[in-house]
Design a protein around this nucleic acid. Sequence first.
RNA 1: GCCCGGGUGGCGGAACUGGUUAUACGCGAAGGACUUAAAAUCCUUUGUUCGCAAGGACAUGUGGGUUCGACUCCCACCCCGGGCACCA
Length: 978
Amino acid sequence: MDFGKIEKKWQKIWYKEGIYKSAGWRNGKPKKFYVLDMFPYPSGEGLHVGHPRGYIATDVSARYKTMNGYGVLHPMGWDAFGLPAENYALKHKIHPKIAVSKNIKRFKEQLSKFGFTYDWDKEINTTDPEYYKWTQWIFLKMFENGLVYESREPIIWCPSCRTSLALEDLENGGCERCGSAVEKKPLRQWVLKMTAYAEKLLDGLKSLDWPEPIKEQQKNWIGKSEGTTIKFKLTTNNQRPTTEYIEVFTTRLDTIFGCTYLVVAPEHPLIKNYELRIKNYGEVKKYINQAGKKTDLMRTDLAKEKTGIEIKGIKAINPFNNEEVPIFVADYVLGGYGTGAVMAVPAHDERDFEFAKKYNLPIKEVIIPNRIDKRNPPVSGKKTEERKNVHALVRNPKNNKFLCLKSKKFLWITFPMGGIERDEDVVDAARREVEEETGYKNLKLVRVLGGEVRAEYFAKHKNENRVAYTTGVLFDLINEEKSPVEKEWEDEHELMWINESDVNCETMCHAEMDVWLKRIKGEEQACTEDGVLINSKDFTGLESEVAREKMAAWLIKNKIGNKKINYKMRDWVFARQRYWGEPFPLVYCEACAEKIKSGKYKKGEFTKGELMNPGWVQISEKDLPVKLPNVKSYEPSGTGESPLVNIKEWVNARCPKCKGLGKRETNTMPQWAGSNWYYIAYLIKKGKKYEWDKKEIKKWLPVDLYVGGVEHATRHLLYARFWHKFLYDIGEVSTNEPFKKLMNQGLILAEDGRKMSKRWKNVVNPDDIIKVFGADAIRLYEMFMGPFGQSIAWNTDGIKGVSRFLDRVWKLSQKLDNKSREENKKLDGLINKTIKKVTEDIEEFRFNTAISALMILANEMEKYPQLSITNYQLLIKLLSPFAPFLTEEIWRKVLGKKKSIHLEKWPKYDTKLIVENKFKLIIQINGKFRDSIEAGKGVSEEEIKKLALNSEKIKTLVGNGKIKRVIYVKDRLINIVL
RNA sequence: GCCCGGGUGGCGGAACUGGUUAUACGCGAAGGACUUAAAAUCCUUUGUUCGCAAGGACAUGUGGGUUCGACUCCCACCCCGGGCACCA
């Protein structure tokens, strides 16, 4: 069979028949299915074998859904703006426009060979002016609605790419693209207020059928945290409090009584504002300068070691206890998050703890762990007794065993323990208890295991509930010398030494056990869990969660604080200083700027965005697109400005408002701009001009299935959701999420296990594979090689397997015989099982097992001398989404059908035929397989038992053994327990 | 450090909500058939180990546990991949 020839032939016929036109597919179909690939960046290197993995999967889905009666839209396009295209063009000294169109041509050729169902009428290209007209239009809408602002804050700058970066574009604190260390540089930027959508973006995740890890990643990226702001009044030079204050943000208001100092970020305004009153201003300034010099990369590297310096001369007052605490400046506090200042609670925050240790600052414990004994939980209705306890953990250093007591009556194992008497020292109490209960009297104190732990439990022996505040004390045994122990006690308790490994939460009957374990081995640590408050005045005894509520209420009442929600996510730096991107549809006009600043303008004369950014005037919609001009040199200017600044005739433009002279914005949009909405662009009405087509948008959105790599989890997928939600809010789209279901494909690695790259010379070109094995084989192999979501190494040998399979399927057509229907009845069970399996597997993206099921069926069919056409047709149909060429050839050429197999109905299975009435009964003895026999389904347990026990093998194995128990799993197995 | 995902034969990988002898399907390897020969194709074998054999023992990262029965559940640990990076 010459697959090269049949591939070409069918490709042509399909095109002529237009079977993949979504319009045609959609006509009269009651259900739609919009299946989308992440469109490629047409790089100069062409496709490698890894790229099409996702495309094949969507293609299988598209074909499967079509056969199931859906109207399917499956488009493809090109994401062609951005740095790589520009760098490629610079390197090869050709205009990016030309390079891009060349690359696209090559990509399209390569893709076409796979026989995808793409409707090429819908093809789009982000660099087409008719396309980016609408990118600009959406930007204008955002601008108009006040979601865009100009910023001169220091932004992240990559000196090698000579462009600004968004926070998301960093990798290990360096530039994602070139890996070089980034700097902070103050540059004029456009920023999109993505934070305004933080809550919506977070909330929307709930409704999405996306892989949980991706949702989790987005959730973490958005990083919502609910807390409180608190104003700490300032005092200077030990004078009375001023009216000025410093505001901090915390999520652990419950720990505020443990606050022993405050820390502000180096950028905090306090420092400048208080220059004169800060006694060590010189030192502080020096520290800040040093911190400012650290790039993000260094800051990350040095993250382990915290640095800081006290701001002398000013102190802050904790509003809850009026204590004065010192203020530090340290770069572990971030200027851009919360209020740029924190209250430090070293006892309950790891970072503060580390800092406090280093600088010898007081650590005050205000939260103690709280445990409810799961084995002996408090019983309602019983009285509750509160007491202070001590647990004595006595270790024998010779063998590392621990001293325990087993109650003969209650069978529980405990450490020597008891109540602390009034004014008694904990260590003394522990020694006393050990001596009283076990007799051992020579103990060496190792250390007290931290503070108290609160625990609630039911004390059986006293028939009352207990709330115990317990301290653990660790001793080493010096020698075996003992005092006598009370007779009565000794009768009821067994003394035992337990191995270190057995001192765990299971054997020991203490709710506090996990805390002791942590404290026994670990060095001192901050306890960051929620618990019960101590040393917190009126709030003492409350649980953390309750305390936070009550304390917040108190703050609000006294107007010294408020509840506050913060997000880690930042606004999106949406400007690049490069040539190859969408120009901003904005003109700067001095006259308009003056007008706005003076306030002498009419209502409605300027848009919200124009007022927010005085002087920047929107190009009117009818003048879009603002075309990217041709330039002689599109090298970055190096000054931090785009090369566009040098094209005077383009830069100088009339102000759209007052017609005075103005200047165009010369930054361009980042690569993500075009890819933010391309799934909508496929629905645009095309002609000489592209027209926004609300009807078509309403018809097709949302995307039902979106397939692409995980690497876009926090960027493309978040940006696109942001734009979509905005478009929804202004009524341009009718769904509030763009992508209903998302599937991630795993990477295909090179045969050496590394990423495929020109650099390693390990790239496999699909063209070569198709030439040797055919398009069907590569499609089938990529779906068969492993679970779709998992990264996997390419193995050209593996493709032989699927290629042989296709050959065998082809050969099966040589023994077709309509008369063999009766004979083939035996296949019914397997065929129906296979239909079920393949159907379900395609739905769930388990292509590898679907193909395996098809192989099993084909293998079975081979055993028959003749094969009925009906059965063969079923196999071919099931295979058709994976191998469109071969199956079409068989369908039309061999079976002589007129219409394409790809427009056929998907086979249905008959459950009745799957169910067999016999099964192989597995007989186990003590859970081990011993024999199997045929048995009828639905036979009673008694009969099965008889059958099993009558088996010769079982008879001999059971012998004289006594049968303790028989476990019978219906229609599966029987297990005889001896 | 924190958060995800994952560890099964020489390799890629199967195994439903704990239950039809773990390793389906494919690759590779070994032997055989066809051939002058090779390729292709077809047939057989293929987890490890003990045994002449019948048959047994051991095997799903490691160590424990729950269960009549564990790849599947629980606890502890080790390793690999990805994400985040002091977010108070």
